[in-house]
Amino acid sequence: MLAPYGFLAPAAVLFAAFLALPIGYAAYLSLRTVKVSGLGLGKGSRREIWAGLDNYARSLSDPEFLGSVGRVGLYGLIVVPTMLGLALLFALLLDSRRTRGRNFSRVAIFLPYAVPAVISSLLWGFLYLPAVSPFYYVFQHAGWDVPTIMSSRLVVFAVANIAVWGGTGFNMVVIYTALKAIPTELYEAATIDGASELAIAWRIKIPIVMPALIMTFVFSMIATLQVFAEPVTLKPLTNTISSTWTPLMKVYRDAFTRDDLYSAAATSVVIAAATFILSFGFLRLVQNRAFSQEK
């Protein structure tokens, strides 16, 4: 009778200790705050008290938070379609029968994913700064007037570019693996029916790898909401990335620069809830279409 629970126990304990408890603690912190009295210099001049939903109200009405949400929305609109479009294109090209140097290309496209975001942001940061960038050196000598990419209007593209560069390879491998699983009989049948490579890709390959595309889309969406390392690394190089440029940067600033864990916890809960709703909302929306074969 106890055996099933015994098998379940390790997972349940790990889940509770490393996921449920910290989440619960964050939720608890988000309802608390510290009140200082007087000059705040003496012992006992700080008391932790219940704050109710004050932290949430402040977080949701903070123009900086709303600004960061808007920025991340724009960033997502740039990154997700570009990255997944490129990943699908590369996967289809690699899968095409006439492609040469397949293994080399696959590794070469995947490689940027192995570079940590902080390192790639530093490398790209150098390339973005006109005074030290070889690109701008060439532009200058060619007489082209190329705008600074880290200026306030373009900086979102500068950050998006790093994400696309780093993420395309991973998504390509996911899609490519799904393509490899397609039985070749389907292609033979299609060829006999007179379908071109392009028609095979469009009519057979893409519909079959749709679940993989949806999964990469959901992952990319979550990664977008959590963008942090790239803008934080670029921040010291430019005036145009503020300390609340993305929602997670605001959480970091509140927790570690302002020493206000409570507001940071509230904002984190909001971000987690938004991620949850967006991911599951999207999955529910496309479920019938994408996963109908699995049922």
Partner: peptide, 20 residues
């Protein structure tokens, strides 16, 4: 004062905009 951290981070953000 007791919140130099807040003032300094406000400096970065506000003067970042102004310098730009």
């Amino acid at each position: 004062g007791p919140n130099v951290n807040v003032a300094y981070s406000a400096y970065n953000d506000e003067f970042g905009k102004a310098a730009e």
